[in-house]
């Protein structure tokens, strides 16, 4: 008996064919969230530069938790920056996959912050960060099987109802495969998005890292993404250990990730794109210039060669 996604999914390669047929037309996301352009992750070391120079950045993404339990300088700076730039919130503590109860105190703070900064949208990751009240402060992988899928979908629905807005959920970088997984990550994400009616943040670097770590083909991965649900794209650098890659956000985006970004752009026609640089952070202008490289792909009109 076919499962739900098999009934809805079109044959592999369909999206490339559609892209070819439509040229570089934009595939709108189902919520009509705007293409904000090229944004940067807001980082402490750049606060002064941003306030002094008002750089021509299209938008900023904040790590939600950095501004939730403080009324000090980070909150003050954010208030100033949110008056000048669109803000998107991206969190790491929703713990969608955890079997612990949903933390509604966390959600209450998150919702209040979203209203305070007038967040254009907010999201988190497909992961769990702790269990049994112990927090590992990492993005741990879920097993890709029916039990966890039902669990994650139910939690996304509950959280979306509480927050009164769709969540925009990011595909993770993962470093291990559970034997109890029964489907691919991309199939899991497709079904999760369709059945919970959430948005997706497609982290192209995570696609690359995950595919390297699991011996998968990133182009095939991208074939399975429901692009009408993709609201945002992430780009970042990573550390290549030879045997595996770690999503360290500490360097420039590598050429292969740029190529994948170009593929994604051809399939969406333009999505808000964010560069993350979280370790060994260089001067603001270096980070900004890295983000602006995305213009090469965003300005391209070439269609996909199927």
């Amino acid at each position: 008996m076919p499962c739900a996604n098999q009934r809805r999914r079109l044959p592999k390669g369909w999206r490339r064919l559609l892209t070819k047929a439509l040229g570089n037309m934009s595939i709108r996301n189902k919520w009509d969230f705007p293409d904000l352009g090229l944004g940067l992750g807001l980082r402490t070391v750049h606060y002064n530069h941003i306030l002094e120079h008002n750089p021509a950045v299209d938008w900023f993404e904040i790590l939600s938790e950095n501004y939730m339990e403080t009324e000090g300088r980070p909150r003050k700076i954010l208030d100033q920056i949110s008056e000048k730039y669109p803000i998107v919130m991206h969190g790491v503590s929703m713990s969608l996959g955890s079997t612990d109860p949903i933390d509604f105190n966390y959600l209450k703070s998150l919702k209040a912050l979203a209203e305070r900064v007038n967040a254009v949208w907010l999201g988190d990751h497909l992961c769990w960060t702790g269990v049994a009240r112990k927090n590992g402060h990492d993005l741990y992988p879920v097993p890709y099987n029916e039990e966890s899928l039902r669990h994650v979908i139910e939690r996304i629905r509950t959280i979306q109802d509480y927050l009164e807005r769709p969540l925009v959920i990011e595909n993770p970088s993962t470093y291990l495969t559970f034997k109890s997984s029964t489907m691919s990550e991309e199939e899991y994400i497709f079904r999760m998005a369709e059945e919970s009616d959430c948005g997706l943040l497609l982290d192209v670097n995570n696609v690359y890292v995950t595919c390297r770590n699991h011996d998968l083909d990133p182009d095939s991965y991208l074939d399975s993404i429901p692009y009408d649900r993709v609201v945002q794209i992430h780009l970042a650098g990573h550390t290549d250990k030879g045997t595996h890659c770690i999503d360290t956000h500490n360097d420039h985006v590598i050429d292969e990730v740029w190529r994948l970004y170009g593929e994604v752009h051809k399939r969406t026609g333009g999505r808000s794109t964010l560069l993350e640089w979280d370790a060994d952070i260089p001067e603001f202008n270096v980070v900004h210039e890295e983000a602006l490289k995305a213009k090469r792909y965003r300005n391209e009109v070439e269609v996909v060669d199927v």
Binding site: Y140, Y175, T177, K179, S180, N213, G242, T243, H244
Partner: peptide
């Protein structure tokens, strides 16, 4: 419980998370 990859054993894959923690 945890499968190996082409390049890493199951323990090495778990150690990535353990080290990062």
């Amino acid at each position: 419980v945890v499968l190996p990859s082409k390049n890493l054993t199951s323990i090495e894959r778990l150690d990535i998370y353990a080290d990062m923690y």
